[in-house]
């Protein structure tokens, strides 16, 4: 067992892929000569060469489409879009092509494309560079959406993603690259679609993913000091969604809060909250709460930006008010 930060866990995952599978190649903006906008592929170009570590022009539609095409003919491309904000340029390739090709060709084509990208705000990158769109992609059939919160999960989920024959949005949170955690030496995988109970509890279920898991854990710590036992669930993947684990937890606690960084309107938390109340209505002791960022563009100013990212105190206040705990 060794400790590493999430960035290093991702580098390890990519090296493994390159080392173990000749069909794997990396493609994206600044991943080669520059070493990656978030330095995940630092040194890769020297090690693996230009053919497998391919710098692309600033043309997301082209290189995402090229990745999908390569996947169709048997390669295992790992395409990096610098941030999820830029995937909008390639959204037609992702939603109308990569996600649909297997279905529309009656399974004649598979698109085993891993689209790595960086999500989330908090880095003062302003309104167009601080968004979280993984919830959008999670609503598209044909795509899988992976949202790790720890180094252990990042590596384990990536390994499982490599074996999957569907296009995958692998969204790494910008603020989590320096998060440290234990990663075993021995090989392991984490199946897609299996949520993690990050902390067991009996009074309230806090459901989160990606950057919000640590916020939920902070809230659980506050609850703990107030004799309230919170169960924290890390979704790990939005699609497939492990509803079973959520419903079992809510049946136990009777109270649920879904925490998500992005805007409340249209947030994936709404879909989850709805699923929970449909499946566990008779077990609920209050409304399924949603904690999301407010419906505003991300401000640049640090103090204002922080005001729109959910905090543990928001969770605590809402839980206390709505559940009388």
């Amino acid at each position: 067992m060794s400790e590493m930060i999430l960035r290093d866990a991702m580098s390890k995952a990519l090296r493994e892929a390159l080392d173990q599978d000749d069909r794997v190649f990396l493609m994206g903006e600044d991943i080669g000569a520059y070493g990656g906008a978030y330095a995940v592929t630092k040194g890769f170009l020297e090690e693996y060469g230009e053919e497998r570590i391919r710098d692309t022009p600033i043309s997301e539609s082209v290189f995402v489409g090229a990745g999908a095409g390569a996947a169709m003919i048997g390669m295992r491309p790992i395409v990096e879009v610098m941030t999820i904000n830029f995937t909008l340029v390639a959204i037609d390739q992702i939603v109308n092509h990569a996600a649909k090709l297997s279905y529309m060709s009656n399974g004649q084509f598979k698109v085993p494309l891993i689209l790595r990208t960086v999500t989330g705000g908090g880095g003062q990158l302003a309104a167009t560079h601080s968004q979280s769109f993984e919830n959008w992609y999670a609503s598209v059939p044909g795509l899988k959406v992976v949202v790790p919160a720890t180094p252990y999960d990042a590596l384990g989920l990536f390994r499982a993603s490599r074996k999957d024959n569907n296009p995958i949005i692998f969204a790494e949170h910008a603020m989590l690259y320096r998060v440290r955690g234990e990663v075993p030496e021995e090989y392991y995988e984490i199946p897609l679609g299996k949520a993690r109970i990050a902390q067991e509890g009996s009074d309230v279920t806090l459901i989160a993913y990606s950057g919000m898991v640590k916020v939920a854990e902070e809230a659980a710590e506050i609850f703990y000091r107030n004799d309230i036992s919170a169960e924290v669930i890390d979704l790990r993947t939005l699609s497939p969604l492990d509803l079973e684990t959520l419903v079992n937890s809510v049946k136990k606690t009777s109270r649920a809060v879904v925490i998500e960084e992005t805007w409340k309107t249209g947030g994936f938390s709404g879909s989850i909250a709805s699923d929970i109340q449909e499946a566990a209505f008779d077990f609920l002791d209050g409304p399924v709460l949603r904690i999301n960022g407010p419906d505003v563009p991300a401000p640049y100013a640090k103090n204002l930006e922080q005001l729109m990212i959910p905090k543990a105190s928001w969770i605590v206040d809402q839980v206390k008010y709505n559940f009388g705990l």
Binding site: S254, F281, D282, F283, L284, D285, G286, Y321, N322, F323, G324
Partner: peptide, 29 residues
């Protein structure tokens, strides 16, 4: 709350006898 109703029904306790402590006087689990 739904769970309070279900629980009260299972236990045969009339809700009218229970004082609610939640928001709007909601009877909780």
């Amino acid at each position: 709350s739904p769970i309070a109703r279900k629980l009260a029904e299972d236990l045969g306790i009339p809700l009218s006898k229970i004082q609610g402590s939640g928001p709007n006087g909601r009877i909780t689990k």
